[in-house]
Simulated assay, not measured.
Amino acid sequence: MSGPYTSFVAIGDSFTEGLNDPGADGRFRGWADRVAERLAALTPGFRYANLAVRGRLLDQIVERQVPLAIDLKPDLVSLCAGGNDLLRPGADPDRMAKTLAGAVRELRAAGAEVLLFTGVDPRDTPLMRRARGRTAVFYLHIRSIADVYGCHLVDQWSMQSLRDWRAWSEDRLHMNAEGHRMVAAKVCEVLGVPTEDRWRYTWPPRAHVDRRVRLREDRLWVREHLLPWVGRRLRGTSSGDGVEPKRPGLTAFEAGPPADAPRP
């Protein structure tokens, strides 16, 4: 089909839910909502659902969200999953890829176009850089899956503009509004959807930050973000416990406010 798209279902975890890109209605906005805004502006009657929930693992997304997406019969489904799995010791990227491939096969058989994502290179991310090897293997699998099943692919690994911390929120795991804006621009480019936003640009130089200031920031991050994350892992709980999808049904979506001003 390759557009114009009349319906879009987004499934996944916190990245697709939109953390930490606050919207005007008090819920998170995120790249998926931003893309839906562009599609709604171009296509009368456009419908959108977002089933993503923060903290979800790949198996949970495949078991709970993929069947719902198939039942909704959309033109386009985005599927980004596995990031939470890769944070855990012992994650098997080969097994994960097999699970993902099965989900993609089902979505394609149902007639939907599928949008897949690689992640950002984690070498600058404190929690994930030790897992860079298995992360790279999983993302190579995703590229292969996209080729085999004829999916659209958003390669965030090659998006050097996302390697600047100004695209990320204080927890160093979730993008801020600027990061989500860049991803939305990249998605639009991959889908052939016109947008004035750009994802490829060079950040202006940053002011020098004293080493002592950086150490204080690191200690604050450990206390406010890392230790709570470790605590949830030890307790077997998730940040998504009790959280419901923000747009569980495929409903009419009106274009929101004008897109953020394009970056130079």
Rank of each mutant, 00 (worst) to 15 (best):
T6E: 10
F8K: 03
F15D: 10
T16M: 06
L19G: 13
D21T: 00
P22R: 10
P22D: 08
G23P: 14
G30F: 10
A36T: 01
R38E: 06
A41H: 12
L42F: 13
L42V: 13
T43G: 12
P44E: 14
A49S: 10
G55L: 04
V62H: 07
E63L: 12
R64F: 08
L68P: 02
A69D: 01
D71R: 08
L72F: 03
S78A: 10
D85F: 06
L86V: 02
P89H: 04
D92Q: 04
D94M: 06
M96C: 03
A101P: 14
G102Q: 08
A103L: 09
R105F: 06
E106Y: 00
L107A: 05
A109S: 11
G111V: 07
A112S: 10
L116N: 09
P122E: 15
P126L: 04
L127Q: 01
L127H: 04
A131E: 05
R134K: 13
A136I: 12
Y139F: 15
L140E: 15
H141C: 14
H141M: 11
I142G: 14
R143E: 15
S144E: 13
G150T: 01
L153N: 02
D155L: 10
W165I: 03
D171Y: 10
R172I: 07
M175S: 08
A177M: 04
A177H: 05
G179V: 02
G179E: 07
M182W: 06
A185H: 05
A185Y: 00
V187Q: 12
C188T: 03
E189G: 09
V193M: 09
D197T: 04
R198I: 14
W199F: 13
Y201T: 04
R206F: 00
H208D: 08
L215T: 07
R216F: 00
E217M: 03
E217T: 01
E217K: 05
D218V: 02
L220N: 00
L220M: 03
R223Y: 11
E224D: 14
L227T: 02
L227W: 08
G231V: 06
G231R: 15
R232P: 09
L234S: 09
S238V: 06
S238Y: 13
S238F: 08
G240Q: 02
D241P: 07
G242Y: 10
V243A: 02
E244N: 11
K246C: 02
K246E: 05
P248N: 08
L250H: 01
A259C: 00
